[in-house]
Nucleic acid binder design. Structure first.
Ligand SMILES: [Zn+2]
Ligand SMILES: [Zn+2]
Ligand SMILES: [Zn+2]
Ligand SMILES: [Zn+2]
Lengths: 132, 132
DNA sequence: GGGCTAATTGATAATGAATGTCAAAACCGT
DNA sequence: ACGGTTTTGACATTCATTATCAATTAGCCC
């Protein structure tokens, strides 16, 4: 464990939503940390491999990282407006994925499931903006 | 409708699995078509916007395109070995996505669902390779 | 602590998919 | 065929991510 890895881990604890490696690097620099961008990339990937952070591929192909509350397998409901993220588990979809995979003779099924929408706050803000 | 767009559409008809824009461009060139890479990118994106082709973001961030049999909303079960793709519909997951989104006050729910696995042929090939 | 070796760091260069540029070519209604 | 509009495509550019590799650091034994 190095000073830099500990710093990335702490930064992730402070941040709530999914952030790109570059955003995390910026935040750390702003907070006084001395760390290189390459190290942030490497550390985040290592954390992701170990399952310590979750990765979300954004619509434009960037990888965003987030330390999640629960360690168990789960999915995400992300607000398109503010990025607020809610952790979701769906026992039904888990078994559905395996069942439908097996039905077609596939083994070693993995799945990618993410939900996107507009949260109540952002919807209210949009309505206020339209109504003034 | 231009000669190039028609050619891309025909190429997509001939190809079965998800291919990248560059792979499609290569195949077309090999087949004697004269077309620029930028045009292939533009055409594929336009087709994707119109819902005429499906897009799959691969693990390394590339966009792969495929003309699907059915026009209606559906998802994919993709073999990690050979790329064979099966179209899936899951009424349960569709309603699940909307329900869980609404339960958290989210509106305008969209979802990303993809299944990956090893098809029976690829599993058999792997077993034969291990057992010789 | 001091020294030693292997792992890590980080400034920089390199990669590569995707997009922007813009003059030339193709399209289409007349 | 003609002229205005759209499309094309070779090329340059962007930008996230990865590779490089000398300098630094961590971990460990004495
Ligand atoms: Zn929001
Ligand atoms: Zn799941
Ligand atoms: Zn297969
Ligand atoms: Zn669906």
């Amino acid at each position: 464990m190095t000073r830099q890895r500990a710093a990335v881990s702490e930064a992730l604890d402070r941040l709530d939503d999914f952030r790109s490696a570059q955003q995390i690097h910026d935040v750390m620099r702003q907070g006084g940390d001395t760390i290189g961008l390459a190290t942030v990339y490497r550390t985040l990937q290592a954390l992701a491999d170990h399952g310590d952070v979750d990765v979300l591929r954004t619509e434009d192909g960037e990888s965003h990282y987030r330390r999640c509350e629960r360690d168990e397998h789960h999915h995400h409901l992300v607000c398109r407006g503010c990025g607020r993220t809610i952790e979701i588990d769906g026992p039904t979809v888990e078994s559905w994925a395996n069942t439908v995979g097996a039905a077609h003779g596939f083994t070693g099924i993995e799945h990618t499931i993410e939900l996107f929408g507009t949260c109540a706050d952002c919807a209210a803000a949009a309505a206020a903006r339209a109504g003034d």
